[in-house]
Write a protein that binds this DNA or RNA. Sequence first.
DNA 1: GGTGCAACCGGCATATTGCCGGATGCATCA
DNA 2: TGATGCATCCGGCAATATGCCGGTTGCACC
Lengths: 144, 144
Amino acid sequence: MQDIDAIDRTILSILSQEARIPMKSLAGRIGLSRSATTERVTRLEKAGVIRGYRADIGQLEEGTIQAFLLVTLKRTPSIGVLDRLAGFSSVRKVSSVSGQLDLVVEVEVGSINALNELRNEVATMDNVEDLTTSIVLRRDIERS
Amino acid sequence: MQDIDAIDRTILSILSQEARIPMKSLAGRIGLSRSATTERVTRLEKAGVIRGYRADIGQLEEGTIQAFLLVTLKRTPSIGVLDRLAGFSSVRKVSSVSGQLDLVVEVEVGSINALNELRNEVATMDNVEDLTTSIVLRRDIERS
DNA sequence: GGTGCAACCGGCATATTGCCGGATGCATCA
DNA sequence: TGATGCATCCGGCAATATGCCGGTTGCACC
């Protein structure tokens, strides 16, 4: 049960695309009963493999300003910070990285004001030690 | 109805953290009936504001290593550096940013060795003043 | 062969959803 | 002013999904 087997991987790949799918439908797709499927999903949640379920929010308006927030934490890991980041619809991508930095956060906001607000919110989070903001001036290379 | 009002924003912020919450509970939290809440959510989905619902997976698949190269240039802009970066197939995205940094380069390589080679190549480019490498340990949030 | 255990299944009571008709507020316009 | 259209809201009912349970199976370990 410690292992993540092929069925678990199927579950994860389905849920990472359609998190609100009923357990019954999920069960049908992977060929298990509903109760076995529910047990597996519950186990994955408890084990921390599934951290939660998020709505994927598109841009609210003309989200044209993109920026990188380079975050150094006081302690790692910090689930609290990640959860709060996930709550901002302007947060597009968060990567935990090695080295001096801890998190690279890519954001997309509608205005400099919004960016400043977001920056402040993140900077004042408990576990955030340091925060550098870099606004994207130009996208030079972008490959699928 | 084209507008996204305060209630919609509340809905989005709740769903971006608990995407599997029953509509009935969501309705209770925002103080509307279930049917009105469902209508709003459906509208947000159709409008593309909600792009989907994703399970937040806490582990990374093996195989490719992703990293950020945070580049400071001696002079900006530097077409030469951009051209040479574009020549590496492992370079996925390059952003010119404001502030202390100049470029944020996202790369994807097959091994630590490949990353080190790439790092060396970039670090020794003429116009590169400073280079910080941060390996992505985990992708915490990713929205299309 | 007995015991413990993880994983599976189905069933029943309860909770949630999909879908409907109908009320309300509001702008438009003859 | 009163009729019309429309967006938004509400509650109700049947269909569906969930939570929770007991029971079965396969397997490792004495």
